[in-house]
Design a protein around this nucleic acid. Structure first.
Lengths: 196, 196
DNA sequence: TGTACATCAGTGAACGCGCGTTCACTGATGTAC
DNA sequence: TGTACATCAGTGAACGCGCGTTCACTGATGTAC
């Protein structure tokens, strides 16, 4: 993680401190959870003075709001891509699981609205995009349901994918059940979707 | 919340401080999440000096270990009762959902092992009891599976119940989907269990 | 192409605060005789 | 029934620490002319 030009001293302007702090936050949360997070620690990780992060995010909740927004955006993109590429609800559900395992900090924060400003317009919009994406994946089923039935089906798919991802992330699933979350997740989700 | 005998000053010995601190912790976590928890605040809530809680639990992780143990014990009891009374996997799953909504603080802590000492023997035993209870509920199915098939079925039921409970708790489910978690949960779980 | 100036990102010293931890103590309870 | 003593729950003063926040500042960048 050394600088490309080690002789040159740190420039006064970071260049992209906002992104750097967000990345540092995700890293720190992966290591010790959101409870231990402090703006001063993120400043240290980003190599800037301790007051710099507040310049961009105001306070911790502001920072986590930005992280949640980024997470919902990434998730919406991931789900859209999976649906377009495979046209399969099962595979879209697995993309959800994979998102949770590859972005554990974002995932953790996104679903703990007491950590951030859940009514922030940007995060509301990003969340709506992800939810719509998930719901529209129901349309890929062979005989797609409509109305209330469609909503319950969507909620069931969301629940099983979310539950499996959460349990996996928390280490609650005994390791002898499997070592690859996608593989085990496929077996689990198949109990609900594309049964044979 | 006044004392029964308000004239009498607080006795030197609390009498049941351990339970009082655990209850105060659950209350505080419901209000502001585990991140904001402090032993001094719990002492204030329990009406004792700030150093008293440490006397019983050592530190915050010790306290949350006790809370997780209590949670897994309560959950195991709830699941056992539901299974014995109804003999139904669906109803046992709904008991899981109901546990999460009635004990949100316990539920939150139990599945965040980075908050406590997950290898503590008491908590390991309590967790094993709850897991075994859940798995044995699979045996109530009309044509109960065995071996790996049984484990995947159990994991699927656990995932959908856990996912629904988690999403409900976090407020992620839009309120127009339903106002009673048991009712909506029944519709959702029925997509996996006891389909008609 | 050059100069002046506005804007803004980041600095660093200072502050007050709530926290966990320590420790000698005090008051209550239970048990031995 | 009474006394002595051990045990243990809870006290309260003291401490050092990392935190968020404030604020006058400095250095870099971009734009107007």
């Amino acid at each position: 993680m050394d600088e490309a030009a080690p002789a040159r001293s740190r420039p006064y302007h970071h260049g992209d401190l906002r992104r750097a702090v967000l990345a540092a936050a995700a890293e720190a949360i992966e290591e010790s959870g959101p409870a231990a997070l402090s703006l001063r620690e993120l400043a240290r990780r980003a190599g800037v003075s301790h007051a710099a992060p507040a310049h961009h995010f105001g306070d911790k909740a502001g920072l986590l709001t930005a992280l949640a927004e980024e997470g919902f955006d990434l998730l919406a993109g991931t789900l859209a891509q999976a649906r377009e590429r495979t046209g399969s609800l099962l595979e879209t559900g697995l993309a959800y699981v994979r998102f949770a395992t590859t972005h554990p900090a974002h995932f953790e924060v996104m679903f703990h609205p007491d950590l951030y400003h859940p009514d922030d317009p940007a995060v509301v919009a990003a969340r709506a995009r992800a939810t719509a994406e998930l719901q529209s994946a129901i349309g890929t089923l062979p005989d797609p349901p409509t109305g209330r039935r469609a909503r319950v089906t969507g909620l069931a798919a969301w629940s099983i994918a979310h539950g499996f991802a959460t349990l996996w992330q928390s280490g609650a699933i005994p390791p002898d059940a499997g070592t690859d979350p996608t593989e085990l997740g496929r077996a689990v989700l198949r109990r609900l979707i594309d049964r044979d």
